[in-house]
Amino acid sequence: MLQTFGFSQYESKVYETLAGSSEPMDAALVVKHSGVPKAKIYEVLSRLIEKGMVLDTVSEKKKLYAALPLPSLIDKLTRQFQQDMEQLAASLTPKRVIDDRVWSLKVDASIRAEIKQMIQQASESIRIMAWSQDFADYLPLLLQKEREGIHIEALVIGSLETGLSNVHLLIPSKEHNGLEKSQLIVADERDMIFAGEEQGQWHAIKTGAQPFVKFFADFFYHDVALSQITQKHYDLLFGDEDIRKMLVRLRY
């Protein structure tokens, strides 16, 4: 019977012999009724004890053995089967291999498609920065992901009503009008895309290389800090010619 569950023939015979007895048995009786050789009996009993299939005790200086009751055996084997299946499923689950190559991508439509795909695949967090016209294209997806419980933090350059919980806005000054646009997304702290527009053409890099991912995540918060400081102290900062020129030289 137990051979079906991966036990040896001797183990199965010993357990069935003990399970069929109304009283505990010593090794000699197990040999007699199971047919397992005397030279093997203690080894087999020891394995069954280690596997929790057999109980042992000492009574009147004699070692006795009893089988784990059948209901308990069924429960044990069921639990073990479930655990084995869970371990098998875990071992067969495709492991994510980090692609630390830096990929180059061109064309606005292709870059937008990749950013949308990254938003859809995010399972934990999204940091995203874009100018308002571009951000509006991603907004429906971002709202859906936030409803699913994904943490989203966004920086929008320009005026835009998003409905997202955690949004930072930076309204460019007139000196910023000539700056090229850019976009950044960091998903799940694992992957990132940074795209920039130069002379009307979009170029992007995409990578899972952690040094780049961490750098651009910090870069995102650099921009957030800049936007908050600028908004809070706008008159002071832009009222000073030297500071204004320095700020204008930054990305925004």
Rank of each mutant, 00 (worst) to 15 (best):
K106Y: 07
S182F: 14
L88A: 08
P71D: 08
A89C: 04
S34Y: 13
H176M: 13
L226E: 07
K206T: 01
L68W: 15
A209E: 05
S8E: 11
E198P: 00
S132P: 06
M1Q: 04
D240W: 02
P24V: 04
Q121D: 08
Q144N: 14
S46T: 06
I49E: 14
S104L: 03
I152L: 13
I229Q: 05
S8T: 15
E11T: 05
G200C: 11
E148T: 01
Q3M: 15
R127F: 03
S21A: 15
E197Q: 11
K116M: 08
H233C: 03
E124N: 02
G163R: 05
L73F: 13
I115Q: 03
E43K: 15
I229K: 01
L88K: 12
E241P: 04
T207Y: 00
K76N: 01
G52N: 09
A67E: 14
G163P: 00
I193N: 00
A109Q: 14
E197N: 05
M129Y: 01
L70P: 11
V186E: 00
K145C: 04
L45M: 08
D235F: 06
Q9Y: 11
A28C: 06
M129V: 13
R101F: 01
E161G: 10
A113K: 00
D84G: 07
H203W: 08
A154Y: 13
H233M: 07
P24T: 03
A113Y: 01
L77W: 06
G35D: 07
G200D: 09
R251A: 15
I205C: 10
G239R: 00
N166V: 15
K145F: 03
A225M: 06
T162A: 00
F238T: 00
R96N: 03
Q183I: 10
S165W: 09
R112S: 09
P37M: 05
A19G: 09
Q199G: 04
G52D: 07
I49H: 06
H151E: 10
D218H: 02
H151R: 14
E180N: 11
K245V: 05
